[in-house]
């Protein structure tokens, strides 16, 4: 039984022949498309390391079957920096030392981008902390993460205003 799945990953279309319906989006990215930036921390939706944007929304890619998302648009950590310029969230993570070992970082960054896009938290630290609580960091970089998300929220809003003006 072989099934074909078409996915747009970081703006590039991929048609994948799936010989196995069990493949999750996470394992598809990591093991079949060599997009290993997305990490597997628990494989059960309990840590957030595998967070990607699926049709624009942040989700745990470990709990999504690839076969079920035929036609989906996916963004991963590898697709953020355009022409070598870091995304504002990426730059803010470096500036605020928002990671240590770096393993949860791709998931944190994708989650932060989802959070900012949702527009519910704004620059309220408590709402940012709550909104980022689906991403565990065992190194304990939460303070830097919160600061980075707030700074990126601010700078992205300013950029958007400038573009509009």
């Amino acid at each position: 039984m072989s099934m074909s799945v078409t996915l747009t990953v970081n703006r590039v279309p991929h048609t994948v022949q799936l010989d196995d319906p069990r493949v999750t989006l996470l394992d598809l990215l990591r093991e079949r498309l060599d997009l290993t930036g997305t990490k597997k921390g628990c494989d059960r939706g309990q840590c957030g390391a595998c967070t990607i944007l699926l049709d624009g929304r942040r989700v745990n890619s470990c709990l999504a079957l690839a076969i079920s998302h035929d036609g989906a648009e996916i963004q991963t950590i590898e697709g953020l920096a355009e022409g070598g310029a870091l995304h504002p969230v990426q730059a803010a993570f470096i500036a605020h030392d928002a990671f240590q070992c770096g393993f949860c970082t791709p998931g944190q960054i994708m989650s932060a981008i989802g959070l900012i896009d949702e527009g519910q938290a704004g620059e309220d630290p408590e709402r940012v902390r709550e909104g980022m609580s689906g991403n565990l960091c065992r190194c304990g970089a939460y303070r830097g993460i919160t600061e980075a998300v707030i700074e990126a929220t601010r700078s992205m809003a300013e950029d958007a205003q400038e573009k509009a003006a």
Binding site: E31, T36, T76, L80, F93, I94, G102
Partner: peptide, 27 residues
């Protein structure tokens, strides 16, 4: 000084052990 491995870690380019995939690899 900011982390010298920061760029690799925020872009997903930092290859952790399980990110490697030599030819012919089995699981």
């Amino acid at each position: 000084v900011t982390r010298r491995d920061g760029h690799d870690k925020v872009t997903g380019q930092a290859r952790f052990a399980a990110d490697n995939h030599p030819t012919g690899m089995l699981y």
